[in-house]
Design a protein around this nucleic acid. Structure first.
Length: 484
RNA sequence: UCCUUCUUAGCUCAGCUGGUUAGAGCACAUGACUGUUAAUCAUGGGGUCCCUGGUUCGAGCCCAGGAGAGGGAGCCA
């Protein structure tokens, strides 16, 4: 009789003890010609399937190699060994797919039963899901994505799908990728010698979106509360461990919210999703936490983290984020011993200039030692749509800074007053005519509103303790790299 | 884009001041063992020292250019 397949996660619960079970998955290791460690991705743990090698065809045994895909049927029993509570006594093995283990042969399975560097695994990103670390990372990533949807859904937010192809280039959030069907070898030109986009697919110049915020504001002016969660594209030539050319962003936009409401929502959301991941992916996060501890054992004492990953996440949940204005931040930095001893590479020059990464890191990691929300930045270093404060010098912006990540959220109360918005756009040379659809929100029933953007991969970085953003997205796109 | 470090076996890395036949651990193969936990033990095979050019009697090592990767910065999420 055929037994239906059970996922390894469920088999490991032990409820099916003394019953026949069928599992399907990939071999991690095969020890002692007897013990197959199998994983099907349903959880971090493997199940041990025990083969009686004396009664099994040696040709079959030879094909049980790391990476091979098997279907195993047998009785689930209490394990005699120490590493696991239950194991399967193999009665039947079907090999779905072999994996060549001999590294001297071409096309051998590149994952060996040993530690590999993250850089090496990045080169074989199509197979790295099969490792403990990346299995854990991508299960956590999934849970965070689900938690974000659940958080907003439970609050009555509408999930708005903003366009991926846009014609607006006024956002100014970054360099854009062009979308075109024009023949690159024979680009049509106008009489004046410019590219004739009238002949392009959309009859105008188009790009991949750098932000769904402006469209999001349109939704908020009808549904009150909306959020977007989609891919975002920036053609910046930035090569860092925190930037991608293609990344996922969450952008809520709320009518009748001021800056304080905005901050409160952002903090509540971050804590909700971190807590959700801790509750639903405990084993994965514990594995990642232990992984970091093992890694840090190689470092000198003074370079090790004060808190483990789990402790860091718990700490973040239990403490209020620090909230300070830009002006107060400048004061703290100016008065710091670090600045007085000239330890900053960029000394604090005074009010008005943007903070450098080292300054943000000092505030978060040395001074407050917890997440920090910076507010009310000088208008000249922020975007046109941010609401002007009464001082005429600052805007109602907020950035949330996380330890080890830097800016994880950027947001603001939006400028809802038409005249002020238009004059700001003129100052910053934003083409007002092209943005007429956006300005309609201010013409027809405008209201105070606010929103923010959360870089999803940066959140995943924080929760998994990974340090390179290329290791928390399945197939990273960065300058000069678009593999798979 | 800028600064900086690196590139040696399938993987992770040693390789002294430029000097004979380039090493280790793991992996892999073969054999032994058989309740293991990345099993253990023995034996064995395995190298375009990233590429191109130069200096030198002699280059893995020095110089120039190029490619790729890591870390930092800028831009930001």
């Amino acid at each position: 009789m055929m037994i239906t397949r059970t996922k390894i996660k469920d088999v490991l619960k032990g409820e099916l003890i003394n019953q026949s079970v069928n599992i399907k998955g990939w071999v991690r290791t095969f020890r002692n010609n007897s013990f197959i460690a199998m994983n099907d991705g349903s959880c971090i743990n493997n199940i041990q399937a025990v083969v009686n090698y004396e009664h099994t065809n040696p040709e079959i045994l030879k094909r049980i190699t790391p990476g091979a895909c098997l279907s195993v049927t047998g009785k689930l029993i209490a394990s005699q060994g120490k590493g696991q509570s239950v194991e399967i006594v193999v009665e039947q093995i079907e090999i779905y797919g072999d994996a060549e283990s001999d590294v001297t042969k071409p096309n051998s399975y590149p994952l060996q039963p040993k530690a590999h560097s993250l850089e090496y695994l990045r080169e074989i990103a199509h197979l790295r899901f099969r490792t403990n670390t990346f299995g854990a990372v991508f299960r956590v990533r999934h849970t965070l994505a689900y938690a974000i949807h659940k958080f907003f859904n439970d609050k009555g937010f509408v999930y708005l799908h903003t366009p991926i192809i846009t014609s607006s280039d006024a956002e100014g959030a970054g360099e854009m990728f062009r979308v075109t069907t024009l023949d690159m070898k024979n680009v049509p030109l106008t009489d004046s010698g410019d590219i004739d986009f009238k002949q392009d697919f959309f009859g105008k110049s188009t790009n991949l979106t750098v932000s769904g915020q402006l469209e999001g504001e349109l939704g908020a002016m009808a549904f009150s509360d909306i959020y977007t969660f989609g891919p975002t594209f920036r053609a910046e030539n930035s090569n860092t461990a925190r930037h991608l050319a293609e990344f996922w962003m969450i952008e809520p936009e709320m009518a009748f919210y001021d800056l304080n409401d905005n901050m409160a929502l952002a903090e509540q959301m971050l804590k909700y999703v971190i807590n959700y991941a801790l509750e639903h992916n405990r084993a994965d996060i514990e594995f990642l936490s232990q992984r970091l501890l093992d890694e840090e054992k190689q470092k000198p004492q003074n370079e090790r983290s004060e808190l483990s990953l789990i402790e860091k996440l718990d700490f973040c949940l239990k403490n209020d984020f620090a909230r300070i204005t830009y002006t107060e931040a400048i004061e703290i930095l100016r008065e710091s011993n670090h600045n007085k001893k000239k330890k900053f590479q960029y000394l604090i020059e005074g009010w008005g200039s943007d903070l450098q990464s080292e300054h943000e890191r000092y505030l978060v990691e040395k001074h407050f030692k917890k997440p920090v929300i910076l507010t009310n930045y000088p208008k000249d270093i922020k975007s046109f749509y941010m609401r002007m404060n009464d001082d005429g010098k600052t805007v109602a912006a907020m950035d949330i800074l996380f330890p080890g990540i830097g800016e994880i959220i950027g947001g603001s109360q939006r400028e809802e007053r038409l005249e002020k918005l238009e004059s700001r756009m003129k100052e910053m040379h934003i083409p007002i005519e092209e943005m007429s659809w956006y300005l309609d929100t201010r013409r027809f029933g405008t209201c105070p509103h606010a929103g923010f953007g959360l870089g999803f991969e940066r959140l995943v970085l924080f929760v998994t303790g990974m340090t390179n953003i290329r290791d928390v997205i399945a197939f990273p796109r960065t300058p000069n790299n678009c593999e798979f």
